[in-house]
Simulated assay, not measured.
Amino acid sequence: MLIELTINDKKVQWDVAADDFLADTLRAHGCLSVKKACNTSCCGLCTVWVDDQPILSCSMLAVRANGKRITTLEGLQEEAAAFAKILTAEGAEQCGFCSPGFVMNVLAMKKELKNPTDEEIIHYLTGNLCRCTGYMGQLRAVKTYLGVNSER
């Protein structure tokens, strides 16, 4: 089945099978930041933006992306680098396996939420699992990146 979509601002046509998942299709076409781990939509590693909304690409069929605008971490290098500097400065970088999906959600959160509380940040990131951290360093980094007022 031929689908037409925009990947990181580039129009493409891809031939996909009816049962191909978007995460697999993206990886097959060079978007290697898109990872899969749980295959149950629980870990957040496969997060991409579809029409500027974060989604779990391991549970979306590629055919459903027809006509959509898809953004992966490869299309957000400047924004990702800015957040990565803060993540490192806060001592919150870990092995990096979960980072692409986590970063995609943090960047989406910056567009969506204004001066969120700790609870709102935690709720927004609930689906992002990290195997190596206690999340406190990441929370500090997210708050710094979002410019959250700490005296709330």
Rank of each mutant, 00 (worst) to 15 (best):
L2N: 12
L2C: 06
I3E: 09
L5S: 13
D9V: 06
K10C: 10
V12G: 00
V12M: 11
V12A: 00
Q13T: 12
Q13F: 12
Q13H: 12
D15S: 10
A17F: 02
A18Q: 08
A18V: 07
D20Q: 01
F21Q: 02
F21I: 04
A23E: 00
T25P: 00
T25E: 00
L26H: 00
A28H: 10
A28W: 06
A28P: 10
H29D: 05
C31I: 13
C31D: 15
L32K: 11
L32S: 11
L32D: 03
S33F: 04
K35F: 07
K35H: 10
K36V: 01
A37L: 08
A37C: 11
N39M: 05
N39Y: 01
S41E: 05
C43V: 05
T47R: 00
V48G: 02
V50P: 13
V50S: 15
D51T: 00
Q53V: 06
P54H: 08
P54W: 07
L56E: 01
L56Y: 02
S57I: 11
C58A: 02
C58H: 01
S59D: 02
M60I: 05
L61Q: 09
A62P: 14
V63L: 14
V63K: 14
R64M: 13
N66Y: 01
K68A: 15
K68V: 10
R69M: 04
R69I: 07
T71C: 03
T72A: 12
E74M: 07
L76N: 04
E78C: 07
A82E: 12
A82K: 13
A82Y: 08
A82C: 08
A84Y: 11
A84T: 15
I86Q: 03
T88I: 09
A89L: 09
A89M: 08
A92N: 14
A92I: 14
C98H: 03
S99W: 07
S99F: 12
G101A: 05
G101N: 06
G101P: 03
G101H: 04
V103H: 03
V103I: 15
V106C: 02
K110E: 01
K111Y: 09
L113F: 08
L113P: 05
K114C: 05
N115Y: 10
P116W: 15
T117I: 11
E119G: 00
E119I: 00
E120G: 06
E120Y: 09
I122Y: 03
H123Q: 15
Y124E: 13
L125V: 01
L125W: 00
T126P: 08
L129V: 07
L129W: 01
R131T: 11
T133V: 13
G134N: 04
G134V: 07
G134Y: 07
Y135E: 12
Y135H: 12
G137A: 06
Q138T: 09
Q138F: 04
Q138R: 12
L139I: 15
R140K: 15
A141T: 03
A141Q: 04
A141M: 00
V142Q: 01
K143C: 15
Y145V: 12
Y145D: 14
G147E: 07
G147R: 02
V148A: 09
E151V: 13
E151P: 09
R152F: 14
R152L: 13
